[in-house]
Amino acid sequence: MSASLQSTLKGFCNNRVWRSIFRRAPARTNRTRSIAIFGNLFLHALPVKVREKSLRVRATYYLGSFSFFLFVVLTLTGIMLMFYYHPAAPKAYNDMKDLRFVVSEGIFLRNLHRLAAQAMVLAVFWHMFHVFYRGGYKPPHEFNWVIGVVLLLLTLFLSYTGYLLPWDQLAFWAITVGTNIISYIPILGKPTRFLLLGGHEIGENALLRFFVLHCVILPLAMIVLIALHFWRIQKDGGLTIRESDERK
């Protein structure tokens, strides 16, 4: 780097605006690097240091990170789709068709959302199997395992509520069958189905309710639990390291 560029960069970082945003000088030692992580709202839940073994591909296959990446993709594409989608019958179906054939890049965003959703279900299951076979549910990780199970259920609920939104025949009958399965629950089944659908049959109320669940309630629950899940990895002492890993 030429001397003039370096001095320009230094001048860029060395003014009131920069220092008002970034409270510290660049971290150059282990201590200041740690403090930079601890003192950052977004990073403080993450560990400052990790064992080298838990960074190996074989330790996680990055399945949890991949699930989270897909969740971010789904959030972004979902927000984009909401700009053209009305949760009303029969408008919802026409909006879905418009997204496919009229809106610029609509088909790309819709397919990305749909494929990422299917990939996320696969990734979360795969992540779960991998953690299970490594014994990641054992103490001190039991509570984080339970959070993970709830996250799996939320992923499935998100997948299921999203299934109704295109308002086509496939969606209609899938939700008919699914909500009838719910009504087989003893005592609570029929009231639960009534509350979920906002009626006795699948109509406008059901579409709107599934939309609110899919776009607001379930994603918020998901974000809170994902944050808790990441934070607990660090608090429980990092990833599970097996004895066979240690010997190598």
């Binding site: 009534f194 509350l195 906002g198 009626g199 006795h200 049959e201 109509g203 406008e204 109320n205």
Partner: peptide, 11 residues
Amino acid sequence: VEYLSPNVLFE
């Protein structure tokens, strides 16, 4: 729960 149970249904 009461709020979420519709009183009028257009069925």
